[in-house]
């Protein structure tokens, strides 16, 4: 682990477990998401990646502890977690299709607005929205309904919505899945541009994408942490190799 990445705003997860009516979807998860890096979360289907994010964003109840800015996220409601600065996207894009790109961003930017100002019509595009539009490259499509966007553009819009929310921690659930090689590259560059002092957690299956853009990688398997480290470290890890070659899973679990 490279020490230069250590920042002040980190999210520390301790002994996290999620139980679905007796089925332990994840257990004994200990992981720290540090500031300023693209932290990839990988693992086979059903490894518990989405469940981990669900637990950290109030969508499912988890036990353990997840501290961010002196708050335990596991005790908070989804909208409170967002207001604290932890945002996420979903495996399937969930932009408001009838609303324009601009309106989508504007709604996302609204959480810092007072109730009184909500009752007014929008007169001009807020600065943060304009900036986000440029960052995600959708300025020219600002007034188009989000429903007509291509798959990749919808995902960028979601990232833009996190930007205007000013999310300090972003969980991106399979954002580049289904994108063309070109779009992936653009997304990777976009993430590099915005990471700054943020913590960006990228859930991904595409190993090529991970190798290119990951600063740090956590591997999950069967609801547990299997390994973590730099790309080189986890690639050299025999347990990870066995999981991804689809063999000796039992051994991997025991280790």
């Amino acid at each position: 682990m490279t020490l230069s990445f250590v920042g002040e705003d980190y999210l520390e997860v301790r002994d996290l477990a999620v139980d679905f009516d007796g089925f332990k979807a994840i257990s004994e998860v200990n992981v720290t998401f540090l500031q300023g890096r693209l932290h990839f979360l990988i693992g086979p289907n059903g490894a518990g990646k989405t469940t981990l994010v669900d637990a950290l964003t109030g969508l499912v109840r988890g036990t353990g502890e997840a501290m961010f800015r002196q708050h335990d996220l596991l005790q908070m409601k989804s909208h409170e977690i967002v207001r604290l600065g932890v945002g996420r996207t979903f495996q399937t894009a969930t932009v408001f299709e009838q609303l324009s790109v601009l309106q989508n961003l504007d709604i996302a930017a609204g959480l810092h607005r007072s109730a009184g100002r909500l009752l007014l019509a929008r007169r001009r595009v807020p600065e943060s929205v304009q900036q986000a539009l440029e960052t995600i490259g959708l300025t020219a499509l600002a007034h188009r309904p989000a429903g007509i966007l291509a798959h990749g553009q919808k995902q960028w819009l979601e990232v833009g919505m996190l930007l205007v929310q000013d999310a300090k921690v972003m969980f991106l659930d399979e954002t580049v899945a289904g994108m063309s090689a070109q779009e992936r590259e653009e997304t990777g560059e976009l993430l590099r541009r915005i990471v700054g002092d943020r913590t960006i957690v990228v859930i991904e299956h595409d190993m090529e994408f991970m190798r290119t853009y990951a600063d740090y990688v956590t591997v999950m398997h069967g609801g547990r942490m299997l390994a973590e480290g730099t790309v080189a470290e986890i690639q050299a890890d025999p347990q990870v190799q066995s999981v991804y070659l689809g063999t000796v899973t039992e051994v991997a679990l025991d280790g």
Binding site: R122, R124, L133, E134, L141, E186
Partner: peptide, 26 residues
């Protein structure tokens, strides 16, 4: 190549749309 250029390439020209940087109104 940046994200911006691609989005611009796929944009349909529309008289009602504001150009990037222009005063943004509805």
């Amino acid at each position: 190549m940046t994200v911006t250029t691609v989005a611009e390439a796929t944009a349909v020209p529309d008289a009602n749309e504001v150009a990037a940087g222009a005063p943004s109104r509805f």
